[in-house]
Amino acid sequence: MNTRRDFLQKIGASALMLKLGSISAFANVPDQIEQAYEGRVLRVAIMGLGGYGTRVAEAMKACTKAKLVGVISGTPSKIKEWQTKYNIPEKNCYNYDNFDQVKNNPDIDAIYVITPNALHHSQVIRVAKAGKHAICEKPMALNAKEGQEMLDACKKANVKLLVGYRLHFEPRTLEVIRMRNAGDFGKVMFFQGQCGFKIGDPSQWRLNKALAGGGSMMDIGIYAINGARYMVGEEPVWVTAQETKTDPVKFKEGVDETIQFQLGFPSGAVASCLSSYNINYLDRFFMSGDKGYAEMQPSTGYGPIKGRTHNGELTQPTTTHQTIQMDEMATIIFEDKKPVVPVNGEEGLKDLKIIDAIYLAVKTGEKVKLRA
């Protein structure tokens, strides 16, 4: 399909004035012609060529500020497949044993770590030592101690550490945050986050404590934690939590099936959240203030985020989350742009501290205070 730029180039200047009004009205496009991006492009290597790595790679085809240029995998056949599919040169292909050599490759700026949770810590530190910016999938690490060590390594190497919080750039999510900042909801009193589905293959790494670091909390529970923080707009000061396990064969020791947790905020607002690997159709955020409310369902999925407030349906554009995420991360890395909601390592560490507290609350049955 021709772009509007192509169309305008083909018509004469005299016809432009006659046609532009009707074209804009029909296509609902702005009068200003979109300018091609001419800035620096972030050249990215993806580490971990599984399902989500593939999703990111496909989304990056539409990026204007970021480009997939390299791969890191422990599976040679996958490397060959990706080389062909994404036109990746041999010199930009590495395995888990030799990827430290990326330090000698000036054609790669950043490495996106999309591997099992337990590998993030060591791999991000190696990326930092190689002098490359690190983008890491969430959760950033298995616990706050590991997360702090990753932050320290990146700071020491003078490289950025970013976390794959794609929803921090999602237009309808950002509209709810804008409305909250504008006072449209009044005093926020309550947040509810429900994240859950019935997980399949019992042999997958997400149900292996050594690789995942836990169960549902380390996969989808973090969405409710993060969502509570960016929707309420505060950092919690306490947490309580309770675990339910109905299938100890599938969900072995240390792999949580379902956790309910509650958060308290300095303003007096409270959050009630649920994370489950054994309950379907849970993907909903709800926030209530004394002047209005916001409801998002789906709230975290890859498909279009949908939502409404007391003012009606949210109608912001539907985007491919990973495309806008990678373009925005390019501006964060090269231009030091400050997004509305941070995606840096410090943000990832805050979530890890809360996860640590949730697991402690489950173990002790007590309210756990959170440090700033």
Results as ranks from 00 to 15, higher is better:
1 M>G: 15
7 F>I: 15
7 F>T: 09
8 L>C: 11
8 L>P: 03
12 G>F: 04
12 G>Q: 02
20 L>H: 03
33 I>Y: 11
36 A>Y: 01
42 L>R: 09
44 V>M: 09
44 V>T: 10
53 G>K: 06
54 T>L: 08
55 R>T: 13
56 V>S: 00
61 K>A: 10
61 K>G: 00
76 P>F: 02
83 Q>D: 00
94 Y>G: 00
95 N>Q: 09
123 Q>V: 09
139 P>D: 03
150 M>A: 05
155 K>W: 09
156 K>S: 04
157 A>E: 01
161 L>W: 03
161 L>C: 02
162 L>M: 15
169 F>M: 14
182 A>E: 14
190 F>T: 11
190 F>C: 08
193 G>P: 07
196 G>K: 01
199 I>M: 14
205 W>D: 08
207 L>G: 10
207 L>Q: 13
217 M>K: 10
218 M>I: 08
221 G>V: 03
228 A>C: 07
237 V>K: 00
237 V>R: 06
240 T>Y: 08
251 F>Q: 03
252 K>C: 04
255 V>T: 07
262 Q>V: 10
263 L>F: 01
273 C>R: 03
281 Y>M: 10
284 R>D: 07
286 F>N: 06
290 D>I: 03
291 K>I: 08
294 A>V: 09
299 S>I: 04
301 G>C: 14
307 G>A: 04
329 M>S: 07
334 F>Y: 14
337 K>D: 07
343 V>I: 05
344 N>I: 03
348 G>Q: 02
348 G>N: 02
351 D>C: 00
363 K>I: 03
369 K>R: 00
